Simulated scan of single mutants.
Amino acid sequence: MNNQSKVIIFIDDQLEPIAHIHTPTVFDLDTHKLTDGPHVLKIVSKDPSGKEGIRKIPFTVRNGPAIVVEGIKENDMVDGILPIMVNAYGKGDQQSFLISGSETPQSIPSWVWVIIICFIGWAMYYLLRYLPHP
């Protein structure tokens, strides 16, 4: 009689498992075979006495190029003409990283402008108040 637990690994609601393995083990999940988006890793374990346990692990695959959108957010209420910037870039492969196009230019947030204006105003006040007058 084998005294190791056995695990059966499924992806999403597939009826065919992707692996039957004995524990302890290391398992390589190849996400390149999965579509981008949400998935569930379902692990069914059976111990030597025949008892079963199930664990479900939700995860999201993003193998394709990243898409960044500026100018509109999910569920925004909009009106008129919107300038929307879209950037998509891939991360390359595991051996090299693609620099070109991997950074998305972004506009300066309004709170940064407020801080800059306040700092310039304070600096002008300081200069006018404490500089010697002729």
Rank of each mutant, 00 (worst) to 15 (best):
I54C: 04
E16R: 12
G71E: 03
D30C: 02
I84A: 08
N63F: 01
W122G: 02
Y126R: 01
A88H: 14
V112P: 00
P58T: 13
I67Q: 07
G53S: 15
G64I: 03
H133D: 00
K91N: 15
D79R: 07
Y130V: 00
S107G: 12
I9A: 05
V44C: 06
L34F: 02
P132I: 00
T104S: 13
D13H: 04
G121D: 04
Q94T: 13
G50Y: 10
P134S: 01
S96T: 14
E103F: 15
L131Q: 05
P109E: 12
Y89D: 03
G80K: 02
T23Y: 03
I99K: 04
M124I: 12
M124N: 03
D93N: 05
I84E: 01
S45F: 11
G90D: 15
K33G: 02
D79A: 14
L127P: 00
M124F: 07
H20K: 13
P109L: 11
I120S: 06
V86H: 03
E16V: 09
P134Y: 05
L29F: 08
H39Q: 13
P105T: 12
G90Y: 13
V86M: 04
G90I: 09
W113F: 13
M1Q: 08
A19S: 02
Q14H: 09
L29S: 03
P24K: 02
M1Y: 05
D47C: 10
L82K: 12
S96G: 10
Y130Q: 00
E16K: 13
I18M: 00
F10K: 05
N75W: 07
K46S: 15
L15V: 12
H22C: 04
N87Q: 14
F27C: 03
K6H: 07
T31D: 08
P17A: 01
M124Q: 03
L15Y: 05
I67E: 13
V40M: 09
D30P: 05
Y125R: 06
D13T: 06
P58S: 06
K56G: 05
I43A: 10
L98S: 11
I117W: 06
V7Y: 06
A19Q: 02
M124D: 03
N75F: 10
